[in-house]
Computed example of a mutant assay.
Amino acid sequence: MFLLVGGTRPEAVKLAPLVLALRARGCVVRVVATGQHMRLFDETLAAFGLVADVRLGVLEGARTPAEVLGRLVPVLAGLMPGHKAVVVQGDTTSALGGALAAHYAGVPLVHVEAGLRTGGPEPFPEEMHRTLIGQLADLHFAPTAAAVAALAAEGVAGERVVMTGNSGIDALLWMHARLRSDAALAAAAAAPLAGVDRRRPLLLVTMHRRENHGAGLDAVLAALVVLSDGMEIVLPVHPHPSVEWPVHAALAGRPGVHLLPPLGYPAFVWAMMQATLALTDSGGVQEEAPALGLPVLVMRGVTERPEGLATGNARMVGTETGAIVAAVRGLLMGEGLSAMAEPTLPYGVGDAAGVMAGVMVERFGRA
């Protein structure tokens, strides 16, 4: 029996294909929802026809990573006995909690999306989380050659590392195909964008990173005020008060700006399919946009996903107001837009979950 631990929407996106691949091979899989982002986690699983087998209710009122971790580890530790392996994904507090609980219980730990590194303290606390998980994991599923190299540089033995591609691309390509073939699903996914003026360019914006709270966010919002005069801006607003309140204060009611609640997975993929370009500090969007031929501007100073930069589908712009405005307007004027809009697959071709499931069955057995 395998135990998969997750709590955020990106974790649900990237773990769902693995759940399906393991169950298709006859494996018994239990999915634990930590409650870090319960509604978004549940809704995303549902898009793949899945539900969590265990839903924890211990995070009510927890606001900081320390509070989340302190509550999760003891509860997760009690779920560990009887499992062949525990799987965590990425770099969230839920992932670190699952990793610590598995290590304390002596249960083998599998890390999906292992080996991503910036080489510095940012992003905080994600870089710390994934580096610590890398020290605890028994099996590392690295998405790219760069991730494999980063693990090797940290002394992780080669037999513990498998390059798999990114299961988020599995999910994206599957949902993209469904949206193109299922008219009812596409209509439901398109509904949140009903008020968008399609005669103007569409800028899809996502921002939530802790390092961008405060002055960085204020600078981004100032750029969006300027850019809203010439284009439509769709911004699903992260519910964290440090994001939600400043965003609404700066942009609510402004013509051309569409402040939406967090979108379900089909709706967000649909929004990427319709957008002219994306402006983001999200790791997942950096991976997804190149596959769709969506040019992406990254509002960060460093990235653990350099592959999109190397293919030319992504550019780093930071959070300075003038730099963001200049980059967006330059692309809209055709400065390199066609090259950035060429679809590429630097993060895998959509078969990662099958590779992972095959390795897990070989190493741990099915039941």
Rank of each mutant, 00 (worst) to 15 (best):
W270P: 00
R363G: 01
T303M: 04
A250C: 06
T311H: 00
L203C: 08
G35D: 11
P74C: 11
I324V: 15
H83F: 11
P65E: 08
G49V: 07
A252E: 15
R300Q: 12
T131F: 07
E307F: 03
T319R: 03
E159F: 07
A249L: 13
R198V: 12
L100Q: 01
L345Q: 09
G318T: 03
G264P: 02
L204R: 05
G7N: 05
L227I: 12
A47M: 05
D197V: 06
H208F: 00
L279E: 04
R160N: 13
Y347Q: 08
G90Y: 02
V58Q: 07
S228R: 12
V317H: 06
Y104W: 06
L204S: 03
V19W: 09
P266V: 14
S228T: 10
L172T: 13
L20C: 05
G134E: 14
L22Y: 06
V19H: 12
L217F: 12
T321G: 03
A190I: 03
R315H: 11
L109H: 01
L132E: 04
G214I: 10
G354L: 08
E122Y: 15
V247D: 10
L22C: 06
A66Y: 14
K14H: 11
G312P: 01
P246N: 13
P306M: 10
V234A: 02
L40A: 10
A150G: 11
M38Q: 09
V88E: 06
M128W: 14
E232T: 07
N166E: 07
F124M: 13
R71L: 15
T344L: 01
V285R: 04
G358E: 10
L139V: 15
A278N: 10
A190V: 04
P266H: 09
G70C: 14
V285M: 12
L202G: 01
I324D: 03
V88G: 07
P10Y: 12
T276M: 02
V359I: 14
L345C: 08
Q135Y: 11
A52W: 06
L259T: 11
V296K: 02
C27L: 09
Y104M: 03
D218L: 15
L116M: 15
A267P: 07
T321P: 02
W174L: 14
M231S: 03
L259Y: 13
A189V: 04
H213A: 01
T34P: 07
A150P: 04
L40T: 00
G57W: 00
G330D: 07
V325R: 07
P121G: 03
P290K: 03
P262S: 00
P295K: 05
L221V: 13
R254D: 03
T118V: 13
V5P: 00
G312S: 00
H258N: 09
A114L: 15
D281W: 04
L221M: 12
